[in-house]
Design a protein around this nucleic acid. Structure first.
Lengths: 126, 126
DNA sequence: CTATGTGCAAAGTGTTTGCAAATTT
DNA sequence: AAATTTGCAAACACTTTGCACATAG
């Protein structure tokens, strides 16, 4: 299957790139406010296509699921107060990855880490 | 609000305890197979009540969201092949927790870790 | 020109809600 | 007896689908 680079597909990708992280709701709102009339079905279908192409992924966080374009490997920090999501690079929190096996021999091939707390900005405001 | 200890609520809690981890779908199936006629609405309402009481929580894993009773703090390992979910205690993978702050001063108060790979049993079968 | 993608409206899925009856305390 | 919970069915929100038309390559 030869995928096409349609206008709508580019808009979905670029909007996500611009937003950084977005729930489907936020993404849809953003697209509808900034580009006239892309149908919901098209947005959802393009998210699927982009995920299959490994250009976009869905991240499941405590409060909501968000989509993001795939970039450098990183984790997420979510502020419990304002909800802002920040990318966290492994070196920033400087911790060594756990062993690559559990004690029963199960191999660990992928890690998903999420951190929650109160962000710097929200701390200042109290 | 004084909560009651109804039969249905106990069944929801005990089923989760028995199952270890269960998606709403699995939980519903289990309850309906093992106890006659608890309505879906009741199951969902009790999950909510139990979560508000911090007796149960929802864990968001890559492929699905599962409920579990709240016990000792732990992480999750999911087998990519058979889907089995295993609890992983922090000491088992022996890694030190990251710093409690990001470099901008945002405080880390909670961690959610998930690991994915091929479990020991599935490795044997190839 | 042809396969892929789009828009629309309808259908589907899982979850939540309003209400009257039942149950726990 | 009073407040909470239940079951039912209807409502809901979000996502997916079928189909005819449009469009990228």
């Amino acid at each position: 299957m030869v995928r096409r680079n349609t206008n709508q597909r580019q808009i979905v990708y670029q909007s996500l790139e611009y937003l950084g992280h977005a729930s489907s709701e936020n993404l849809i709102r953003y697209i509808q406010e900034n580009y006239s009339d892309i149908s919901l079905a098209t947005i959802y279908r393009n998210l699927d296509v982009l995920m299959n192409e490994h250009k976009v992924k869905k991240v499941k966080l405590k409060e909501e699921d968000v989509y993001e374009t795939i970039k450098e490997h990183h984790y997420h920090y979510v502020c419990r107060n304002c909800g802002m999501i920040t990318d966290v690079l492994p070196q920033e929190i400087g911790f060594k990855l756990p062993k690559l096996e559990l004690k029963d021999g199960s191999r660990i091939e992928e890690y998903d880490f999420a951190f929650y707390g109160i962000c710097h900005k929200c701390q200042q405001q109290n």
